[in-house]
Design a protein around this nucleic acid. Sequence first.
DNA 1: GTACTCGATTTTTTT
DNA 2: AATCGAGTAC
Length: 854
Amino acid sequence: MAARQAQAPDYLKGLNPEQRLAVETTEGPVLVLAGAGTGKTRVLTTRIAHILATGRAFPSQILAVTFTNKAAREMKERVGVLVGEAVEGMPWLGTFHSIGVKLLRRHAELAGLKSGFTILDTDDVVRLIKQIIQAEGLDDKRWAPRTFAMMIDGWKNKGFGPSEIPEGDARSFANGRGRQLYQAYQDRLLTLNACDFGDLLLHPIRIFRQHHDVLAEYHRKFKYILVDEYQDTNTAQYMWLRLLAQRPGGKPISPLEGEMPGRAEGGASRQPHSPPSVASGDISPSRGESGSAINICCVGDDDQSIYGWRGAEVDNILRFDKDFPGATIIRLERNYRSTAHILGAASHLIAHNEGRFGKTLFTEQVAEDDGKVNVHAAWDSEEEARAVGEEIERYQRNGHLLNDMAILVRASFQMREFEDRFVTLGLNYRVIGGPRFYERLEIRDALAFFRVVAQGADDLAFERIVNVPKRGLGEATIRQIHDTARALRIPMLAAAATLAESDELKPKPRAALREVAANFERWQKALDHTPHTELAEMILEESGYTEMWKNDRSAEAPGRLENLKELIRSMEEYESLRSFLEHVALVMDAEQNAELDAVNIMTLHSAKGLEFQTVFLPGWEEGLFPHQRSLDEGGRSGLEEERRLAYVGVTRAKKNLHIWFVSNRRIHGLWQSTIPSRFLDELPEAHVEVQEGGNSYGGYGNSYGGGSFASGRGGRQNPYGASRFDNLGADKSGGGSFSNTYATPGWQRAQANRTEATDRNWGTRSGHAVERIGYGETDSGYGAGRGSIKARTIDGELVAKSVSTEPSPFNVGDRVFHQKFGNGNIAAIDGNKLTIDFDKAGQKKVLDGFVTGV
DNA sequence: GTACTCGATTTTTTT
DNA sequence: AATCGAGTAC
């Protein structure tokens, strides 16, 4: 060991001391708290390289888990580069789910499945659940399949099988039949020889628990375990990891028992931090002890935990050292990515969260000519898109690559406006994680054909395409197939074949069914001795599917045919139809070409782990960001997660950051007035510059009634009041310390009633009387409990209401004025929704708070 | 059994 | 706005 350190190998060069410690502490449990941009991936990959290079393990003895396929792919590549071609891919590097599949394929029979099982996506799951709900004689209107699918997913994230779900949960659905339905669902999955996403983790967990010999096999196999984004693990994943990390010599671990104290006492201020921090343990390997050393290394950042809605438990990372006693904890706080301004803004923002480990990122970048974080206002989302487009073109003129810029949105519907704009500008863009290739209708149809061929028991797929193209097999026939299948306890395909030979059907459907059955039989026979791409083409041809689209005269048809070709093409990369189908199930998006220079558009969630020279963050408005739903459902922790999301967004930027908010946004077709996000208030004045903007976009922005965004106010230049947050810490105990000057009813009213276009500027509020509503004290406001409270009240009036039961103050026929559409007459009233015939703009629906009587 | 119209409803984020 | 489902007409 000493010798090894004397002459450090190449791959260790350029690591800072903390990173190097994280790489070289190979033995025992290690937690690496890696702030944004501190070289987390580098540490992980170098660590793997180090383990391999020093001969500690073979590639096949390292289990490395990530959350996204993107991360897995990147890690594979980077390890390859470090280690050289000598090592062919690591078989156990992948996402939780892909590794889960791999385990499950090997031991499928232990879970009651056959190895060729199908993986159902959300869509399939919902359809299946709908069938089950109907089969139970329940009304699928009253009990939405989607809702139940989400409940099941939630249970599975927590590791609960049907018999383990809490009584209360079981009761809450379908008059107490939740458990029964869940069980029925699981039974059905088994007969379909299928799994949902949750099962990919749950089945292995159950197998490990029940078959110690199997678990022991993997204990022997995996010498090192690495986990990326540990803060995103949910309970099931945690259990899965614990089982694998647990060693025979160690004390028995029963996850979930002795549930940890909330982070209230554990998380927040344990471990006062002192950057750069020093590991608590020294490097001496602990593997000598009793054969129970757990060489597990988890990397994560509690400040970037943004998947709580998917069941992620931040607590997993906050209590790591309790789970793994004697763990080495290493903090990476040296940021290599962002300028001091961006970092300052991010740190200040995230400091508003409680229950953190607490890290202080720092950078050594010189800040001389670095710009501050820019905050821009726009009138509505169209103008926002226009202005962002202009800003992008300006950067481009100054020599920036489009590839180095990204627009990160909170919700995917925001993307459209940018796409529209960029299309008209002729600006290249790429949407990452957008509408998925594999979710398109024609692709799903084609896949359904393939699935039935690969796995004859896949009734869901079968049902999807029995009557595609139209063969005159309607509801009645399908029900008959269903019944036969159920009665004989055979898959629908087999039932169809049986039925086609019987005389229970009328001639027409009978002939059709006979053909379908014969087709599939033929294809299934061909499966083993035909190249899969050839087979795929054959299927689409012979089924008449491509024919169907060729005859279709609609505008989309050519595109669909193109997509089908693309599908066949992409199949070439896989060895077999099965492996292709598996890929599709796990990796829903198709690869993008990085060749083209294009602006990146994606959600904040999918931006995690990426970085860009220039980042645009549009849509910072209350209700959208933080999202209303997180507030309603998650209370304060929901708000904190949103704030972490904001933090993730801000820290994606290396050099330039532009944040936008608009005053009006169209939601579900209605124009709604919006107020700036509280997160804007939480950015430190010192690192932010507010762009008045109007002049630079002259020619635009004026069309709705003149006036640009020049503040025109006497008084302060900077709309930010002086140091509103300087006393943050000091005031905390006093309660009500935060004041959000945008977020007041008074301001809202003022804004809603405003008719003078020049008053649009957000700066105007400084002139109005301001009612202050503290939201620092929300704890007391809605009681720190969970569940039952109506979190809606959490921030008082903070959030723009979209629905109101108040009768509208207007009457049909009233003459009204709207800031965007001008004058018009009310044509209809529905609650607070008005349908108005505008003189110029035609008929529109708007909320009543949005117009004024004339 | 199929095609079309009307009305209702809305998922924010993803493996 | 756009999609989905139900209901209606062919």
